[in-house]
Design a protein around this nucleic acid. Structure first.
Ligand SMILES: [Mn+2]
Ligand SMILES: [Mn+2]
Ligand SMILES: [Mn+2]
Ligand SMILES: [Mn+2]
Lengths: 217, 217
DNA sequence: ATTTATTTTTAGACAAAACTAAAAATAAAA
DNA sequence: TTTTATTTTTAGTTTTGTCTAAAAATAAAT
């Protein structure tokens, strides 16, 4: 259907449009895809030809309905494979992304239907992100950043914003994990750092950490 | 490491060199890969540059040690994925090939190690073909074609030579399956057709069938 | 409202992997 | 052993996706 490259562009645009009211800029896509702006312009023209995006010169790019649907199916595959790797093949959550980046491009409807069934229809991936269903629908959790909590408040860790290996390994090292309760024992006004309690331990974390953890209260 | 195309060429050459004492010809590769001879020459030069094959103009091509090793790892991945699809995702043996052709190119050592473990180190794929281990070693079964059996002889079906969907579906339809016992009730001299008994049924099969079934006596 | 800076697009080039058409080498036939 | 047929290689294109460098458009600053 679509090339590996086209699929990656669609996914990148889907990701970027969540954090911008207007169209997604050429430079933003280039940054996200680790490529050059001129390459982005070329590809965006091609996607526009195929009616996967709406594009007017210098005006940024928007996903069309089919473009959005296609992108959501790639995301679905990516996240289902991540669940597979963690639940069945004992990967840790910081090891799955690279492999899922490859697996998400395998073309087979039956494969993904059966994988979903085999995994017992998971609703979230190992990082807490929702898994779209076959029609592209998914449940958006009402979550907030840990940085928004005040002293004395508590909640459950339901997701991470930064999914880099470095960050995830840092969390592992400090016993901070998905599903665990976090309580804000203290919040330093000066640097916005927090003293938290989780997994039976008390530790101080910097704002770089608190703005990358999603909490459900 | 190697491109998808390079990997497919190596696999094709590995496959072809089993049935030819001398070097594998350009035309044979072209036929196997559904491409043109000129394309093969180009790629063979490239593989030769990378020391994956030994190639002298007009003399055919041979796999080098690293070429053979690489090809065997692709075969290993292909067959492990086929086992996964049949054993875990309820694919039938005639549906797996196309998907395995894609999955065999996923690059991750951990993935294949863990998959092997998850499947409990299978020795053969759903078509009875041996699965090379991480070092490229595999067990060659002493099997013979059903067509070589005489009236009265029997054996177990341990493999198929033709793995096309059409052939496999024909076998399914007639209750002929891997692991089942087959007894030759009669052999017609004139057209080499056979009357066989398997799965509690008696049926007559043509030589097109008998030369594509491997038996262990 | 100009000037300056930034972003985006165009123009031209390149590498990978395929193709067609023609030339060269090898194999088969006369 | 010539002649003919087949196989293989070369030469020149094409497509996809990328790049650099330069031009054009938009945004920011004076
Ligand atoms: Mn991921
Ligand atoms: Mn994820
Ligand atoms: Mn196969
Ligand atoms: Mn097989």
């Amino acid at each position: 259907m679509f090339s590996l490259s086209e699929e990656n562009y669609l996914k990148a645009i889907l990701h970027l449009q969540k954090t911008s009211k207007s169209g997604v800029s050429t430079n933003a896509i280039a940054e996200e895809m680790q490529t050059k702006a001129s390459s982005v312009t070329d590809m965006v023209k091609k996607l526009s030809e195929k009616d996967l995006v709406i594009y007017k010169k210098y005006q940024g790019v928007y996903l069309s309905d089919t473009g959005r649907k296609t992108a959501l199916q790639i995301v679905r595959k990516h996240r289902l494979w991540e669940v597979f790797l963690v639940d069945k093949l004992s990967f840790s959550w910081d090891e799955v992304h690279e492999v899922a980046e490859q697996l998400e491009h395998i073309k087979s409807d039956k494969l993904i239907t059966e994988l979903d069934k085999f995994l017992e229809f998971p609703k979230r991936d190992p990082h807490g992100d929702p898994i779209p269903d076959a029609k592209g629908n998914f449940h958006v959790a009402n979550k907030t950043l840990l940085s928004n909590l005040s002293k004395g408040e508590r909640g459950t860790l339901v997701g991470v914003k930064d999914t880099s290996t470095e960050f995830l390994k840092y969390l592992d090292k400090n016993n901070i994990a998905l599903g665990k309760t976090i309580e804000v024992l203290d919040k330093e006004e000066f640097d916005e750092s927090m003293l938290i309690q989780t997994g039976g331990k008390t530790l101080r974390i910097s704002p770089m950490v608190t703005v990358n953890i999603f909490i459900k209260q």
